[in-house]
Design a protein around this nucleic acid. Sequence first.
DNA 1: GTAACTACACCGACCAGTCGGTACATTTAC
DNA 2: GTAAATGTACCGACTGGTCGGTGTAGTTAC
Lengths: 164, 164
Amino acid sequence: MAGRRGIGGLTLDAAAQEAGVSKGGLVYHFASKEQLMLAVVEHLIAGWEQAMLTELGKPFDEATAAERVRAYTRVITGLTTSRADLAILIDSVHEESLLEPWRGLLRRWLEEAPPDVSAVDRAVARLAADGLWLADASDTSNYDADMRAAITARIDRLAEGPAL
Amino acid sequence: MAGRRGIGGLTLDAAAQEAGVSKGGLVYHFASKEQLMLAVVEHLIAGWEQAMLTELGKPFDEATAAERVRAYTRVITGLTTSRADLAILIDSVHEESLLEPWRGLLRRWLEEAPPDVSAVDRAVARLAADGLWLADASDTSNYDADMRAAITARIDRLAEGPAL
DNA sequence: GTAACTACACCGACCAGTCGGTACATTTAC
DNA sequence: GTAAATGTACCGACTGGTCGGTGTAGTTAC
């Protein structure tokens, strides 16, 4: 999964070579490039969702909104997620069909039926995590290790709940 | 500036038509597509920087780190910035040369020589603002007006300074 | 007269998608 | 049991279209 040009810049030839098959073989499995990209996005998101579940450490249905947001931000900001993958996936912003898997993830992990007082802090925590992801992917963060640790800790605290 | 495919997907023909000039005329001014894209990015960033200065309401050199971050987050999260432009610019993540104008903006507005205790909160405020931008551009925020106002107010408070 | 174009034809690289064909395993028919 | 038919996975050459970029002759404005 090299492709420095994002998922949109990935060519069928390159994808085939990467996968160790011929272009024809690749096309046999994915009728169109869009289907291929969708499969990539879905695969990566499924992996993250798995990581979030592990991070949760308990069944999804038994977790509170705060715990879910924390699992989300930790996976997004953590080393679990490869920088390269993130850069590759940014393109999905342009393609409605590729956005759908994202929306699903966000709906499952971040939506809360009756938003309480600390819902705002949780939303800010989520947005900051997304922002850090973007900064990492674009290599515009340049925080040193200490600062980064402090930032993720602060995000964690925002996700935590009522206490400030 | 329509181009739903981002700045990378913009064609010279489309850009010329959009600008109301011929392709030849466009090429006359921008020797390559990369130069054209760079000019677009620089133009938009210059516009935002202008908006940030207005938001600051005082000379840049007299402002504190907190005031600068607030100006930054307000412009980024505010209606000043058009959603479409944001979606178009996301592509610059893939192109080192297009990233440079961004880095300049971030360096000027967010860097602080001696980071104090509340630098972490300011960083989180910046990241949350960027996250909100990304969510808007990808249409994955779906916060209602009240929630959005509360979020931006919270980001404002984080940028503010020491008080929690 | 020169800078800033327009209009238009064209080239070459790149790339998604097509298509004829191969190899091989499994099933069906007799 | 074996021959024919079917299905699945895959190859790689080719096609058709797109797009960045070039070239050139003519036009407008100052």
